[in-house]
């Protein structure tokens, strides 16, 4: 017995909206970043589900690239956050980084 396509898509949509809400509502930089990762994983689930449904492999190849990009993004993003904490302010609250405005 296999899981119907709709179930996977619904789960992916829930994950995506959770991530979206996290980015908009949370103030902690690391949690915002984790929420973005959640959105990327919703995409991966979507792609795998569609790939299985269509019986072609493109979606699964896409998933590999999304994973790689997410890893690269994490490396750079965490480096930026480390630099920020070291040179700017020892805090992870996004609202406290407010030199640039106008």
């Amino acid at each position: 017995m296999s899981v119907p396509l709709n179930y996977a898509l619904a789960l992916a949509a829930v994950l995506f909206v959770t991530g979206l809400a996290g980015v908009i509502l949370r103030r902690n930089i690391l949690i915002i970043f984790m929420s973005i990762e959640l959105m990327l994983n919703a995409t991966n689930l979507n792609l795998v589900a569609f790939s299985r449904y269509f019986g072609n492999v493109n979606g699964q190849i896409f998933v590999f690239f999304v994973l790689v990009v997410a890893a690269a993004e994490a490396a750079v993003g965490l480096a930026i956050i480390v630099s920020l904490v070291r040179h700017y302010k020892d805090s992870l609250n996004g609202d406290e980084f407010n030199l640039l405005k106008g």
Binding site: I36, I80, S83, L84, N98
Partner: peptide, 13 residues
């Protein structure tokens, strides 16, 4: 630093 952080978070989003 701040520019990089804001660009990164919204860009990744």
């Amino acid at each position: 630093n701040e520019a990089s952080l804001k660009y990164f978070l919204l860009g990744a989003f």
